[in-house]
Amino acid sequence: MENYNTDLIAFISKRSGVNEDEINYNSLIEDDLGVSGDDAEELIIEFSKHFKVNIDKFKFNKYFDPEPSAFDFLNQNNRKKDPLTVEHLAKGIARGKLDDDIIKG
């Protein structure tokens, strides 16, 4: 995984706006780096293209909150999402796919 470290961190920094020095393998894509909703979907799609990672079985709504809406105040059950870290993305690069098996494995 370390072979991808520099390119992956630079990729995430460019798309999240977070300084490379503040990103590490334990960084949570949504909670630490602030990437959510449509931005998260775009990041994962671009990640897939850039690193040639198959995301056909990746479940966005399992790892990211949807775009906020005017009615969010009505639904305050705060859905628990699974964590997605930079390390998970690195594992996806190494295996050529990103799905639950890679993330949980």
Rank of each mutant, 00 (worst) to 15 (best):
I93H: 01
V86W: 05
V35H: 10
L33N: 08
G105Q: 10
N54V: 01
L74Y: 11
K49C: 04
S27I: 11
F71R: 12
T85S: 15
K80T: 15
V86A: 00
D101Q: 12
G105L: 09
E87L: 14
F73G: 00
I55N: 02
N77M: 02
A70K: 08
N3E: 13
P68Q: 03
K91H: 10
D99I: 06
D39M: 13
A90I: 03
S48Q: 04
A10H: 14
K57C: 04
K52T: 06
S69C: 06
N61W: 07
E30R: 13
I29T: 04
D100N: 15
D82F: 09
L98W: 04
N77Q: 09
Y63Q: 02
F73D: 00
I23C: 05
L74A: 08
S27E: 08
T85Y: 04
N24P: 10
D39N: 14
N78I: 06
F60C: 03
A70I: 09
T85E: 03
I93C: 03
K62D: 04
Y63W: 00
I45A: 13
A70V: 07
F58N: 02
K91G: 01
F47R: 00
N19L: 13
F11T: 00
E41M: 14
N75Y: 06
G37A: 12
F51M: 00
E46H: 13
S13F: 08
T85M: 05
P66V: 00
I9S: 03
F47Y: 15
D101G: 13
K49P: 02
L28H: 13
F47G: 04
